[in-house]
Design a protein around this nucleic acid. Structure first.
Lengths: 232, 232
DNA sequence: ACCTGAACACCGTTCAAGT
DNA sequence: ACCTGAACACCGTTCAAGT
């Protein structure tokens, strides 16, 4: 029997939970979570869709595992970043989450908007392990329970707003965007802009991408505010 | 011919774009955007799915119209709120957007996360009319172009983070949540919390809902920061 | 043990046909 | 002019069957 000699008809030979999750993430990175289907994923793995159900409970579970993996990768990178001030910790954390958003702009909406498993797991900091690290680090720096929890909330909200916006800008495929500052008659927005003179006039300024600088100054503002709240 | 005497077999008699959008919003408010389908919407309107395509280009267009209607309602309420300081304007705007999030928690994710039509339309302030009002109001209070645009960005990010989190908490259906502070052995999270002592200990504090108060103090912090940036 | 074929109950959407 | 039946190309998921 000639079992191993004909070449694999698809990239991966043996199925595994890990391979499924990795391939799902790759497909999401390529074309968004919207267009991921059990069937297309199976096809890329060289298998029928039903085979996936041996390793994953269903599509919802699969997406949860993808999020889990992204969070896990991030958390392990964070452990190395030890600092002496709480500001340093929050800065390192913020940069790691931003890195996730920038490297996976099409997957980040999943991290940011999938319904959390528990009410005390707020996106985008959605792993128990990470939240525990967050809280115990701040408590270690002398925060009270209330201060640590309040900081967790402010910080989640800051990261969510800032990074979801940045990811959505970066996640858009570069399609007919290259030429959008030409054509002042505005064929893409037609008459909508006629009644919006300021938007029309400020369009170039509004379209500028200052995400990185904005992120850093906004982060400093948050840290300043927290420092003042603690001192008082 | 007895044309008008037999009772309507379904709620709405005559189809219209407006009825379609209203019913779609009602269905989203009830059970989330996820579970809205052209077929279920048609059924609620007493019609076949294909009839909807006379009034709406497709599902994507329909969702865009729902968002448009929510934004329109909000914008018209805002016009009445005239104020003497820019702080008052931003406060009124923030409260209107929050009201939208609180009244339509299951529809708000649509406002917050659907890909914007243009890069200078940032969620959740996603109508040209509203952005124009925003910019011209601030310019009218003496802001420079750069200041107005920067304020638009900070404010969008603040509203998005704060309100998406609040809406996601409020959007969850009250199912087996009533009793979740009993049962300290934690059957819902099982062993996950065993390695997360701080999360376990602070669970009650983390689960508290302080959204309204938090929103107000966070808003004040944003306004303070803007005022300081302007003065310097 | 691991994968699959066939089937079920759904989707969004098109188009020729009905009234 | 407005609605529909039938069809197409998809979905997620189950389950008995294959190897």
């Amino acid at each position: 029997m000639h079992q191993e000699q004909h070449p694999a008809p698809a990239p991966t030979r043996r199925l595994s939970r890990e391979a499924i999750i990795d391939t799902a993430l790759a497909q999401i990175d390529r074309s968004g979570a919207q267009s991921l289907s059990m069937r297309s994923l199976a096809q890329e793995l060289g298998v029928e869709a039903m085979s996936l159900y041996r390793y994953v409970e269903g599509k919802d579970d699969l997406l949860e595992r993808v999020v889990e993996q992204l969070m896990g990768d991030m958390t392990s990178r964070l452990d190395a970043d030890l600092t002496e001030h709480w500001q340093g910790f929050l800065q390192a954390l913020a940069n790691e989450v931003r890195r996730l958003a920038v490297e996976h702009p099409k997957a980040f909406p999943l991290v940011a908007t999938r319904p959390p498993a528990a009410p005390w797991l707020r996106p985008p900091l959605r792993s128990v392990e990470l939240v525990n690290t967050f809280l115990s680090t701040l408590l270690g720096f002398g925060f009270t329970d209330e201060q640590a929890v309040h900081t967790y909330r402010s910080f989640s909200s800051f990261l969510l707003g800032q990074l979801l916006l940045e990811a959505s800008v970066r996640g858009v495929d570069p399609v007919d965007t290259p030429f959008d500052d030409a054509d002042p008659s505005g064929d893409d927005d037609e008459s909508t802009l006629a009644d919006a003179p300021q938007v029309l006039r400020l369009r170039p300024l509004l379209s500028e991408d200052r995400s990185e600088a904005e992120f850093e100054t906004a982060l400093e503002a948050v840290l300043d505010r927290l420092a003042r709240d603690l001192a008082q």
